[in-house]
């Protein structure tokens, strides 16, 4: 297995890891107790997907790095997550829009990964698909509720969509790493997921009385290790305990 395999798995695994860390920021702060627990559940599911993929990436890399080494001992420029997931939580509308755009992507992604030539990856994807099917149901529900809700909620959803839409397209931009990993039948081609993703996003936004924004120049670079300033702060918080007490367990 070449480096492209490790890179391709980190692109998915890191996206899950960073989003899980973002979602845990809502713990104790969500608009309602019930939603607080729902977001924590989703964070744990997504963290589980990250753990599986990082572990597998470490095995394929063969340099002795386990999930902890990859999660806690890499700097921001070594992370391969989408820029979308490192965006701040913002208000609840921003969190809902970010989650929906992500869930609509993973709903398609896991289907492709379930066909992976790597049996471990296929197994992770098969389990993740079931969990993500619930996540996208949950986030779609909120998009519709808030989009087609009050004047205030509609306004906030419009603002969130405008802020986050430029980050939505990065997931579908192929590069040479993707092409190599697709040749090894490890992952689906990113651009092949765009059509079903768009179909779902359009359907839900229409239901929510929200316009599908026109395509901008997609913000990109996260999958190649070029991140916004937000990621360093997020990682500092996520990694501080492990870096202060290497190998600590409790």
């Amino acid at each position: 297995m070449g480096d492209h395999s490790v890179e391709a798995l980190l692109r998915v695994g890191d996206s899950c890891l960073v989003l899980a860390q973002r979602l845990t920021g809502w713990c104790g702060h969500a608009p309602a107790l019930e939603e607080d627990i729902a977001l924590a559940n989703i964070a744990l599911d997504v963290l589980g997907h990250a753990r599986g993929l990082l572990t597998r990436a470490g095995e394929l890399e063969g340099a002795g790095r386990d999930e902890d080494a990859l999660a806690y001992l890499r700097g921001a420029e070594e992370f391969r997550n989408l820029l979308l997931v490192e965006q701040p939580n913002g208000d609840f509308a921003h969190t809902v829009v970010r989650q929906f755009l992500f869930d609509a992507w993973t709903a398609e992604l896991w289907k492709g990964l379930a066909e992976s030539s790597d049996e471990v990856v296929a197994g992770i994807a098969e389990k993740a698909a079931k969990e993500s099917a619930y996540h996208v149901r949950h986030s779609s529900g909120w998009v519709v509720r808030l989009g087609d809700g009050t004047e205030e909620s509609h306004r906030r959803m419009l603002a969130a969509l405008e802020d986050l839409w430029p980050y939505a397209g990065e997931a579908f931009l192929d590069d040479e790493v993707d092409v190599a990993a697709v040749e090894a039948r490890l992952v689906p081609l990113p651009s092949s997921l765009e059509k079903p993703w768009r179909a779902r996003v359009s359907y839900v936004l229409e239901e929510a009385t929200l316009p599908v924004p026109p395509d901008p120049w997609w913000q990109r670079g996260g999958r190649q290790g070029r991140h916004s300033e937000h990621l360093s702060y997020l990682l500092a918080e996520m990694q501080v305990v492990h870096r202060a007490h290497p190998g600590v367990q409790w």
Binding site: L33, E34, E35, I37, A38, N41, Y134, R137, G141, R145
Partner: peptide, 14 residues
């Protein structure tokens, strides 16, 4: 607490 039946079912699940 939930806003409607569908949300109640999802919240109960969670």
């Amino acid at each position: 607490h939930a806003a409607d039946a569908e949300m109640a079912l999802e919240n109960a699940r969670d």
